[in-house]
Simulated scan of single mutants.
Amino acid sequence: MTAPVFPLAAVVGADSLKLALCLNAIDPRIGGVLIEGPRGMAKSTLARGLADLLGGGSFVTLPLGASEERIVGTLDLDAALGEGRARFAPGVLAAADGGVLYVDEVNLLPDHLVDLLLDVAASGVNRVERDGISHEHAARFLLVGTMNPEEGELRPQLLDRFGFALALDNRPAPRERAEILRRRLAFDSDPPAFNAQWE
């Protein structure tokens, strides 16, 4: 049983970001969403809420320091050594098919990996040719990247390839912070009832 997810609609503020996420859910060909802003701005909560809206869509976080092989998939060594045949072992992109691929601190990824993610997100297909393997599979996912500009910029050529880039740079006002706390406490005390209220 999966843990309940805080609903996208219940997030206080961030209306432009919620709209951008919903538009990408309607048409993934838009090219994903890049969210700029400091920590504590509910970026991952919004992305999880989006995955929940997709009706069974998975929420996959790209592991920090993931290699290209881990992302696209590679040769299954157990099959190669044990059975003497080449077999494809799927990676992160296969796991994200049909859901959301969340890339925290996308600006700290090597440029070639950002390019790779954007290419696959745009085409909806992951093609792998290496180690004697030629394989392709569907990889239709919504790409949500986050970055804190204080930790490094993203090259303009890569920035331009995201469908939307939004900056969250204003801290909530005291009244909004109080509402954030009220909603979070209500969710934590009874997630099903809270989610039903926001369905």
Rank of each mutant, 00 (worst) to 15 (best):
A122K: 03
E153R: 15
M147G: 14
G84H: 00
N148G: 13
D104T: 08
G55E: 12
H135D: 02
A173V: 07
R184C: 06
R70T: 13
V128N: 02
H135V: 14
A47Q: 09
L101Y: 12
E69Y: 05
L142D: 08
G82L: 13
I180P: 04
V125E: 10
L75Y: 01
D78A: 15
H112E: 14
D52G: 09
D169P: 02
L77D: 00
D111I: 06
L181V: 15
G55F: 08
V125H: 04
V103Y: 03
R140C: 03
A95I: 04
R171T: 11
E150V: 03
F164V: 14
G98V: 04
L108H: 08
R130Q: 10
T146Y: 00
R175C: 03
F162R: 02
R130E: 04
P174R: 14
R171Q: 14
E68R: 13
V100Y: 09
L77T: 05
P172K: 06
D97C: 04
G82Q: 08
L81F: 07
L185T: 12
P172W: 05
L158S: 11
L77F: 09
L158T: 10
D104N: 13
P90G: 05
S123K: 00
A51C: 12
G98W: 04
R140L: 00
L185H: 13
A51P: 11
A47G: 09
A86T: 05
H137E: 14
Y102G: 04
F141Y: 15
T61C: 11
F162N: 02
V128H: 03
L154Y: 09
T61A: 14
P149F: 12
I71N: 01
P90T: 06
L113R: 02
A165P: 01
L158R: 14
L109E: 14
G132Y: 00
A89F: 01
A165H: 13
G152N: 10
S58D: 07
F88M: 12
A173F: 04
E153V: 12
E83V: 00
L168I: 12
G55T: 06
G65Q: 04
G55K: 05
A96G: 04
E69P: 00
L158W: 02
R48T: 01
V106L: 15
A167E: 07
E150K: 06
E105Q: 15
Q157H: 13
R177N: 09
P156E: 14
L77M: 12
N170E: 11
A89E: 11
V128A: 00
A66Q: 06
N107G: 15
D115V: 08
V114I: 15
G98E: 08
F141L: 09
E179M: 14
L154P: 13
A121E: 03
A51I: 12
I133K: 01
E176Y: 04
A80K: 00
G57M: 05
L154H: 13
E153S: 15
F162L: 10
S67P: 05
D111Q: 13
R183K: 10
A94S: 12
L116I: 03
V128D: 02
F141M: 06
H112T: 07
V125N: 03
L185R: 15
